[in-house]
Simulated assay, not measured.
Amino acid sequence: MTVSTDAQEADGGPMKGAYVMDTLRGEVGEVVGQSGHDLRLRLPAGGREWDCPADAVRKVTAREHLAARTALANARSRGDVCR
């Protein structure tokens, strides 16, 4: 289960498990960690992780959050989740 879309750490950054929009790639990613000033992101259904500068992410909209959760549910139903 993921945390809410507005989950923030004490310093204002997104918490592990939160969905954010990578504005450079135009994709929703799940925060899986941090590497220096970059966030480590992964598609909600899993796959290869990537780094994104923390200042290049924004909160996801309700619609984007729903689409990401739907993609994850669909991938799970097909057995395609890569974690």
Rank of each mutant, 00 (worst) to 15 (best):
C82V: 12
A56Y: 09
L43A: 05
A7I: 11
A62W: 07
R48I: 00
H65L: 05
M15Q: 15
R40N: 10
G26V: 05
G26M: 06
G33V: 05
L66V: 14
A18N: 09
A73T: 02
V81K: 00
G46T: 05
R40W: 03
Q8P: 12
K16A: 09
T70N: 06
A7N: 15
R69C: 06
P44S: 04
W50Y: 06
G36F: 03
T2A: 13
G26L: 07
W50M: 08
A68F: 01
G29V: 02
R63V: 10
A67Y: 06
A62F: 03
E64R: 06
L41N: 04
P14R: 10
G13L: 15
A68R: 06
A68W: 00
L24E: 13
P44N: 03
G26N: 08
V3S: 10
G29F: 00
R83W: 05
A54C: 11
G12R: 11
E27Q: 11
L24K: 13
G33D: 07
T61N: 08
M21C: 06
V28P: 01
M15I: 13
E49W: 02
R83D: 03
H65F: 02
A18T: 11
T61H: 04
E27D: 07
G13M: 13
R78I: 07
S35T: 09
G26S: 08
R63W: 02
Q34T: 08
C82N: 07
R83T: 07
Y19V: 05
P14T: 05
V3W: 03
D6L: 13
A18G: 07
V60C: 04
R42D: 01
G26H: 04
D51F: 04
V31Y: 01
V20Y: 01
K16W: 05
L24I: 15
C52W: 01
G36M: 10
G29Y: 00
V20P: 08
H37W: 07
T61K: 06
A18R: 14
R25K: 13
G17L: 04
D55N: 15
M1N: 09
P44D: 00
R69M: 10
L24P: 10
R48K: 15
T61L: 02
V57D: 06
R42C: 02
E9S: 15
S77K: 13
H65W: 03
R40M: 11
V3P: 12
M15L: 15
D38R: 12
C82Q: 08
V57Q: 10
A56I: 11
V60I: 03
D11I: 14
G17E: 01
T2P: 14
G79P: 04
L24C: 12
V81N: 00
R42W: 00
D55S: 14
K59C: 09
C82A: 12
E64Q: 10
L39F: 09
D80L: 09
G46N: 01
D38G: 05
M15E: 14
N74Y: 07
V32S: 01
R78N: 09
W50N: 06
C82L: 12
A45I: 02
L39R: 14
V60H: 02
K59P: 10
E27S: 07
A71S: 10
E64Y: 01
G47Q: 05
G79E: 01
D51W: 06
S35V: 07
R63H: 08
